[in-house]
Each structure stands twice: as structure tokens, then as C-alpha cells.
Design a protein around this nucleic acid. Structure first.
Lengths: 334, 334
DNA sequence: CTGAAAGCGCTTACAG
DNA sequence: CTGAAAGCGCTTACAG
């Protein structure tokens, strides 16, 4: 490999000068600069980012840990982070915890060892407060993405309460009283928030908590069982709200198995939705997240934090849009 | 930050010994080791992967450049690479070229500067031979993923010719003669192979190249125009094969706009398909790629190559499976 | 305007 | 079984 020493020799200058030409860190005579650039060209020299990072105490790289790279919403967030990081000239190190707190912890350690300038974390479902311990005080900058918490870190996610409230009002406005919420694993902040908002909104609509229909479960199997039980009640739900793509898929499978039709037998709405869903039947009412934007914002917050570690943490909530389609009956005129 | 010097002082040993305890690179008295481990614990020492990489001339990291992180198939490949790399104790650096050769070239340089141990590359559509120049000879190991070439590198992708042949035979066997192939940008190796196989298979079925219906286009706009033109012929196609998810979506939109119904007005089959498509109508006949496995295999090939730079390059083709559904009429009994 | 030199935090022959 | 020291390829005060 060519190093700065070789370039310096060929150009007849010191390695200091080569370094300063490379980085533009101090003035260099135009003649000298040309010699250096020529030598760089001839030796096809490439800077060693490792050595540079070690001296500068900065790697120009960031880490991203997602909880479920298989979810389309997370795939979009990854794209948002990658694109923004690339624009910043920052390299992205990617890890997937697959909802396993132990894998998450290992990923954090690996990224910290690699001395990334900061980390963006979408926490795994069972991830406890100890996962954030390495970031408290003046440690490595951290941005929480999608799954937010009360901790004093920069955070970016979506508004979860407002869309649930709107959906509930829309459905109760159509006369639905028995609405099933498929909430899934409420250890996940997004799902917890949606569940809480549901409880409140139903209460406001005159359905006390004790009479509300909710499926909360930490595994796919238990979710399926819960949905099955709810659908086979003697007074079954007339509407379903599923709180994620995976939960919507689970609910739709059960609904199809029972031979129920949307929206005649059952109204249906889902968070996140399905890619290219506009091409297929049934057309589902969907709460669409600005997932790419969430990722992009996370990268921007992290860059700001890296530049100024003293600033107050900021929490950004982006607004999803509700796309009303045939699965909840007629489109509201509002 | 705690360094080895601090640990060594606290344990009353040399930094050599600390290093050897950490890496298990030579025998250390049990008593001495315990002292070192205790000091590591007390100082909450964390190894600096940068300094380590610089001395060892190895970063234990690999780079992955995908051409379109938005495609579900690539999202799956990313997961396959990530999971396999994590098992190997290797960190993944991710870049997305978004089908732009210039972004691809920049990503290659950035990864090389970071001295990754190897790179996995799914080339952008317009990426020329110069993109591979840095990897010829005994340069950084390279594995080509999904989009293969004739160059002497390790490669992993899917079998493209056999499924096209099978689909064509299936359709011609049902009496279809005017089959439209939506091939897209045939600068992309996978799409080129599918197109070539189509030409051959149709020829074998008695349709000479001059009479075959094919849409080849480098942009979404031209693709749309081509599909529209094909569907509005006086003798329109009776069947469509779309060579990717994006192309299938483009074709389906045109088909819906014209009010055509599957499979009565038109038989339809697509490569890659749509996530959760089993839940929706119409049910599409799909060539399903083992995308996760492609990614996992790429990471394995790269690890082998890093371990043995002298070995002959190997080319792996994984077999897709064709899932026949209602969009091509009755399921064949074969 | 430029150069000589210290030092980032490790690994690894070399020596005992 | 362990330590002293060189050196990986850079950046950056310091000096002139």
C-alpha cells in the first residue's frame, strides 16, 4: 500500500505538507501543492481512514441498530439513514438485533469498540434501561429512533396517539362499538402508545376499559390465539385495528380463515400497511408512516449532537397520514 | 477513555501481558490473568478496534453496496449478509448506490479507505468494467451479489434462465402465443439473462425473435410507455411476464387502468413478487428468489476469500421456486 | 510557507 | 512465563 511517506518522497516534501494538501488544513504554495497532487496521482495513494481516525479521535462513521430489518418500515428507515449519512460523508455501520436484547447489547459493544461517532438505535422489544447505560453523561452520542422513551436522549419517531384517536372516532362515528385492537407486544413503545390511545379514545366514546377488546401478546403464536379467540366471541368485533404490518397480516389470515369479508362483515384498518397495496384487493385503510423521513431525521439529529454535545436533547414526532380506503367503508368527507 | 496502559498499571503487569490475556495469543499464568481481568473489569476497559486493526492490518469489517435498498429482495439480501457477518464477528458497513454508478464508485472508495477486509457488491445498472478495477489481482477481496458478470470474482446469484423457460413452456402449453416480457433495464445482468432466456424459449416454441413482444427500457417512464403500447396493439398479448417487483407493479397499474382482469383477459406472472401477497387478490404466479440465502452465501464466500486469497473464484447460482397461482389460470399438475 | 517529531492505542517479534 | 520496544499511518502543535 502507498503511504504518505512514499508520496512525500516522490514530491520532495515532508509528510506534513502532504497531509495539509490532502485535508486543506493550512496554506500550501501552489507549486508545492501541484507536485504533491501529481505524486498522489502517480502512486494512486489512498488515505488510510483508520490511522486518520485514530489521530483525530473521530471516525466519521455512525452505527445503526434496528430491531427488525425484515419489516418494510425499518427497511425504509435504514434507507433514510444511509442516504443522509452518505450526504454528510459519513459511513454507516449496520446491525440488526432481531428483537433480541442480547444481540442488541453485543451490537452496541461492537460499534463502541469501533469508535463510531454516534449511534442510532431502534430498541428491541425486551430491551431494558441498562441498554442505555453506556450513553449517559458525556458518552457516545445516541439517537433513539422509532421506539422512544422517557430518557434524556435525542429521539425521533411518529405520532402514535392522534391517528388511533382519529381511527376510533371514524369507526365509532359509523356506529362501531365492538372494535378489536391488535396491539401485539406492548413492551414496544410505539405499540404501547397506540394501545394507551385506544383505551382513552374508546373510553371517550363510552366504552369503559373493561369492555374493550384488545389482543396483547409477546409472541406470534399468542397473538394468533388471541385474535382467534376475539373473532369467535358470541358478540364478535365489527371492526379491527391492527397496530403493525405483521399484526395486520396475522389478523387478515384469521379473518380469511373464518371466511369473513371486508368491509361487509368487518371493518379493518392497519398501521404501516403493505407495499404496493394500491394494486391489490381488499384496499385497506392505512396509517402510513414517513419511515424514510424518520431515518433521515435520526441521522440529522445525530450529526447535530456530535457537533454540539452540550445542547438540550430534542424529541421529534413526525405525523403519519391516514389513507382511508374501502376496508373501513365509505370515505369520510371531512 | 481507558487504555491498556491504565489496565497494565493497575494489574502491575506489562501491556504485552494485557494484550495477550485479551486475545488469548500466548499462555499467561492463571494468577496473572486474574489480576488483569480484574483490572479490566474495574476500569471498564474496552478494546480499541481501530488501533488493533491498524496493527493487525485487518479490520474485521466488510462492506456491502446494494444497487437499490428499496427493493424488498435487496432488503432481504442485506439481512442475510448482516446475520451471517454478525455470526462471524464481523461488522457490516452498508452503502446504497441507488443505481447510480457514481455513487457506487464513491462508496467503493469510502469502504477501501476504511480498509474493510472485503466488499460485497450488487452493481448499479450502468456500472461499467472500471468499477471492478480496484479489485483485480491481489487487491481487496470482492464478491459479486445478484448481478453477476464474466469477470473472475466470487459470485452468488439466482438461476435466471431455467424459470423463464419453465414459465414460457407453462404459458405456451396453455395455448398462449403472444406473451409480453417486461424486461426493463437489460444492462442489469439478471434482467439481461431473463430476456435472453425468453428469446430462446419463445423461439423453441415456434415464435421467432422478430415476432416476440418485449419491453426493454432504462427508465420507469419509458417502461410505462412501452407497456402501454404493447397492451394497445391490435393483437394484444394474452399473457405477461414481468421481470421484477417494480416492473410487475408498473404492468399491473397499466392493466388495471385498461380495466383488464386476471387471468380471464390476461395471464400474469412476475419475478420476486410482493410481500404478503398471499393475503390479497389477485393471487399472482411468482418466481420467488431465496434472497436471504443469497446474502448469507455472499458473506460466506467473502469470508472464504479473505481466508484464502489464492483459491479459484466460485460462482454460486441458487434456484428460485415458481409458485403457481390463479393469475396464470389452473395450477399445472406436473 | 514548510519541516521534524511526538503520539493516537494497539500487536508482536525479540530477549531473557 | 513475562517485559521492553518498535512500529502500523496518520495529524498537529511547535519551531523556524
Amino acid at each position: 500500500m502507498t503511504t504518505m511517506v512514499k508520496v512525500a518522497k516522490l514530491a520532495g516534501v515532508s509528510i506534513s505538507t502532504v497531509s495539509h494538501v490532502l485535508n486543506g488544513t493550512r496554506h500550501v504554495n501552489d507549486e508545492t501543492r501541484q507536485k504533491v497532487l501529481k505524486a498522489i496521482e502517480e502512486t494512486s495513494y489512498r488515505q488510510d481512514a483508520l490511522a486518520r481516525a485514530m489521530r483525530r479521535n473521530r471516525t466519521d462513521s455512525i452505527g445503526l441498530i434496528v430491531s427488525d430489518g425484515g419489516e418494510p418500515a425499518f427497511a425504509e428507515m435504514i434507507r433514510g439513514v444511509e442516504e443522509t449519512a452518505a450526504k454528510q460523508g459519513v459511513t454507516l455501520l449496520l446491525a440488526n438485533s432481531a428483537e433480541d436484547p442480547r444481540r442488541e447489547a453485543r451490537a452496541v459493544q461492537a460499534l463502541l469498540e469501533r469508535r463510531v461517532d454516534g449511534i442510532i438505535l431502534a430498541r428491541a422489544a425486551g430491551s431494558g434501561p441498562e441498554a442505555l447505560a453506556d450513553f449517559a453523561g458525556q458518552g457516545t452520542p445516541l439517537v433513539l429512533m422509532d421506539r422512544l422513551s422517557e430518557d434524556p436522549f435525542d429521539q425521533v419517531g411518529v405520532e402514535n396517539r392522534a391517528p388511533v384517536k382519529e381511527l376510533v372516532q371514524h369507526l365509532t362515528g359509523q356506529g362501531h362499538e365492538r372494535i378489536l385492537l391488535v396491539a401485539g407486544d406492548t413492551r414496544v413503545a410505539t405499540l404501547r402508545e397506540r394501545h394507551e390511545a385506544f383505551t382513552d379514545a374508546m373510553e371517550s366514546a363510552g366504552v369503559p376499559a373493561a369492555k374493550q377488546l384488545v389482543v396483547i401478546a409477546e409472541s406470534a403464536k399468542k397473538t394468533d390465539a388471541g385474535i382467534r379467540a376475539a373473532l369467535s366471541r358470541s358478540t364478535p368485533p365489527t371492526a379491527v385495528i391492527a397496530c403493525s404490518t405483521v399484526l395486520a397480516a396475522a389478523a387478515l389470515r384469521q379473518i380469511q380463515q373464518r371466511g369473513l369479508r371486508l368491509p361487509d362483515d368487518l371493518a379493518f384498518a392497519a398501521f404501516d400497511g403493505f407495499a404496493y397495496a394500491d394494486l391489490f384487493e381488499p384496499q385497506l385503510t392505512t396509517v402510513r408512516q414517513p419511515a424514510f423521513q424518520v431515518g433521515a431525521t435520526a441521522a440529522e439529529l445525530l450529526a447535530k449532537r456530535i457537533a454540539d454535545k452540550g445542547a438540550e436533547p430534542s424529541v421529534v414526532r413526525l405525523a403519519p397520514t391516514i389513507e382511508y380506503r374501502a376496508s373501513t367503508g365509505t370515505t369520510p368527507t371531512a
